[in-house]
Nucleic acid binder design. Sequence first.
DNA 1: AGAAGTCGTTCGGCATCGTCGAACATCGGT
DNA 2: ACCGATGTTCGACGATGCCGAACGACTTCT
Lengths: 273, 273
Amino acid sequence: MSDPRRSTIQSVDRAARILKALASGPPRSGVSELAERLGLAKTTVHGLLRTLERQSLVEQDTETGKYRLGPEMLQLGNAFLDHHELRGRSLLWADTLANRVGEAVRVGVLHGRRVLIVHHVFRPDDSVQILEVGASVPWHVSALGKVHAAALPNDRRRTLLAGALPQLTGRTITDPHVLALGLEEIARAGFATEEQEAVIGEAEVAAPVFDHRGHPVGAIGVAGPAERVMPRGPSDAVVVAVLDTARRLSREMGAPRRHDARPHAPRPRAEAG
Amino acid sequence: MSDPRRSTIQSVDRAARILKALASGPPRSGVSELAERLGLAKTTVHGLLRTLERQSLVEQDTETGKYRLGPEMLQLGNAFLDHHELRGRSLLWADTLANRVGEAVRVGVLHGRRVLIVHHVFRPDDSVQILEVGASVPWHVSALGKVHAAALPNDRRRTLLAGALPQLTGRTITDPHVLALGLEEIARAGFATEEQEAVIGEAEVAAPVFDHRGHPVGAIGVAGPAERVMPRGPSDAVVVAVLDTARRLSREMGAPRRHDARPHAPRPRAEAG
DNA sequence: AGAAGTCGTTCGGCATCGTCGAACATCGGT
DNA sequence: ACCGATGTTCGACGATGCCGAACGACTTCT
């Protein structure tokens, strides 16, 4: 046990790595395949899988003998959502916001280098949309992620800027320096935008949500077709609605007043469209 | 290791029990509380929690020191859905079915004594509805559960009938004998109904889905207001649509022909309304 | 059709690793 | 300032999880 991070329980740590490997790999994985990916003995992986199977955290395909994630996993993920304070408090606000602007609303939290979507309200029109709850995207391609990052303490923000910044579209900002300047502007304005940086044709406007200590706990934003959300610069109506909602949501989370008022005039000058 | 179920890895098993305890208990639980609930030493629970925290499977509240499920849990639950074959293949069929009958569609699988909802399409009208994916209900109060149970081998069906059958509404069927007779009728008809047995005012019609070995893997059904779905006995249009969809879905799962044709005439006599 | 590779699985022994009780640090309410 | 509660660290014992070798079943080459 000379590990600098003292005393992690080996078998549990390995079990967790198996679950993540099953999640990120192909739908069904075999024992040998997992053993090689994790650098463990085949029989070790087998024992872990058998234990996880008894708990329905993984399932074994009765024919091929391969393993996949089990139904209990979904129940636990659902329980995470049920217990998530920001999500719970945002349900009503998100509905209201979606109806107000006529676009989809997303609530997300920073998790590692990605933004995890914890709530998603479809655009009010009844087009076919896929639910994104549980999905995650790189933080720098999402307005939710950028606005959360901009509100972070310096060291954590630097860490985010220092890591990998994959390019998803032609408009994804991958230069750390450009991104850093963008975050400063976002911190001043109190909201972030994203235009076709994640998906071509889609844009997003988001504002941060703070807890009772004034720390950022997530963000809420409006996502939709770029020409509607950011016709030339961000739509004023959308920006006002998002800021208003985020402010009320923050207050419901117990945030102190200083986050209520944003430092700029109600109508920030439009950025270059 | 005198345990009849040989060789489960103790620490992993305990970690799983901690996760389930966190999921089923209050939103945040303390170390001592969990230790007592699981009958373990406080420090043992602490070590397990610390390991789970490093993997983001649990989070610690920075103020109270209590623990809750972590964001990674949601990602894993989402991965389960992504890898779920029945769910993946049902996405399009469920949309089509929802539009055809104008009601909500649910796809569920039997998990223990409950039905786990793996897909849910909202009723096409744009009323406020909550997404039920990840939720679970007792098998005997859901048409999805009953139709799945009716297709099970005798011993597994008997196990379901033998256990607890909680009463959720005044119309919930809790008598194992009545339920057993109902399952026989369901097996003959090829579909199941449920009228206000889970939620007052709501009804459901469901049909089973089979895999390439002819085993039931889940069910798909239409849920909505009792007066529309089961005006007096099940709506013929809904029954035909559900059976048709389930049959096509089964075929897509590779099911053999014998499950395609249902043994009865296209219009089963209406049950007592 | 045989052979040679794969797969998931079982077994048993060595030593690692997880467990537990006592003691510590910290907080909150009296 | 006390007390009781919390989450946490430490150290030592021995139960426990790890691994290599071997098995049976299966697929896939030749």
